[in-house]
C-alpha cells in the first residue's frame, strides 16, 4: 500500500516539476548574470528555472539535487534570500548591506540548515571577488533529507550595498572534486559593471 502511494506521489511530483521547471543550457564563454555581474565559463552548465528557487539563479552540472550552484547577483539591502514555512514556523532570511563576511556566511548557513541539515565552516578567508574586496569560504554540508555529505565552496562581495555571491555544493565523494575547479575558474573570471 505504502509502495503504491510512494510511486503515485513520485509520479505526480515528476509531472508537476516537468510542468513548472525548465532547463536551459549556459554556453561556454561570457555570460551576464543579472545587471552587473559577468563571468566567463570554460564549459557549459545547466540553468534550472523553477518556482521556489528564490532570488538566486540555480545552475547544475549533474542535475538537481546532486549538485547545485546558486548565483546571487545584485541582492539589495533588506531583500530576502530565503522565505519559507508558515505560521509559527515561518522563516525569512534577509540580506543586510552592513553584513560582514562572517555574517553573510552565517546567512547562507541558516538557509542551508533550515530543514535540520548540518553545516560546518571549514575555512573563511579574504578573497578578491569580481574585482572587489570579498571573501571565499569552504564548508561541509550534510543534507537532512538523505544524509549525503556535501562539500561546498562560496565566494562573495558587497558592492554598492548589493550582494554578489556564488555558492556551490555537491556530494563530497566524486562530484565535488569533479567540478570544484570549474567553479573556482568561474569565480576568478567574475567582474562587475560599474
Amino acid at each position: 500500500m505504502m509502495r503504491n502511494m510512494k510511486t503515485l506521489v513520485a509520479a505526480l511530483l515528476v509531472l508537476a516539476l516537468s510542468a513548472c521547471a525548465n532547463v536551459a543550457k549556459m554556453d561556454k564563454g561570457d555570460q551576464a548574470l543579472g545587471e552587473r555581474l559577468m563571468v566567463t565559463l570554460d564549459g557549459p552548465w545547466n540553468q534550472v528555472n523553477a518556482p521556489g528557487l528564490g532570488p538566486a539563479q540555480t545552475w547544475t552540472m549533474e542535475g538537481l539535487p546532486v549538485d547545485q550552484l546558486r548565483i546571487y547577483s545584485g541582492i539589495k539591502d533588506g531583500e530576502a534570500i530565503f522565505t519559507g514555512g508558515a505560521g509559527q514556523n515561518a522563516k525569512r532570511i534577509d540580506f543586510r548591506s552592513t553584513m560582514q563576511a562572517d555574517d553573510i556566511v552565517g546567512m547562507f548557513e541558516s538557509m542551508l540548515t533550515r530543514d535540520g541539515s548540518t553545516f560546518k565552516l571549514d575555512k573563511l578567508e579574504p578573497w578578491s571577488f569580481a574585482g572587489e574586496k570579498g571573501f571565499r569560504f569552504e564548508f561541509t554540508f550534510t543534507r537532512k533529507i538523505d544524509g549525503v555529505v556535501n562539500s561546498g565552496v562560496g565566494y562573495g562581495t558587497v558592492s554598492k550595498g548589493e550582494l554578489f555571491a556564488l555558492l556551490y555544493a555537491a556530494p563530497r565523494l566524486g562530484f565535488f572534486p569533479r567540478h570544484k575547479d570549474k567553479v573556482e575558474q568561474m569565480a576568478r573570471s567574475a567582474r562587475l559593471k560599474a
Binding site: 500500500m1 502511494m5 519559507g84 514555512g85 508558515a86 533529507i145 544524509g147
Partner: peptide, 22 residues
C-alpha cells in the same frame, strides 16, 4: 485512507521530512 496510513508512518519515520516543523 492511504493518506492516514502515511500519517501513521510519518509519526515515527522520515528523518528528513521535518522542513516545515517548528
Amino acid at each position: 485512507s492511504h493518506a492516514a496510513a502515511a500519517t501513521v508512518f510519518a509519526m515515527f519515520g522520515a528523518v528528513g521530512a521535518i522542513g516545515q516543523v517548528g
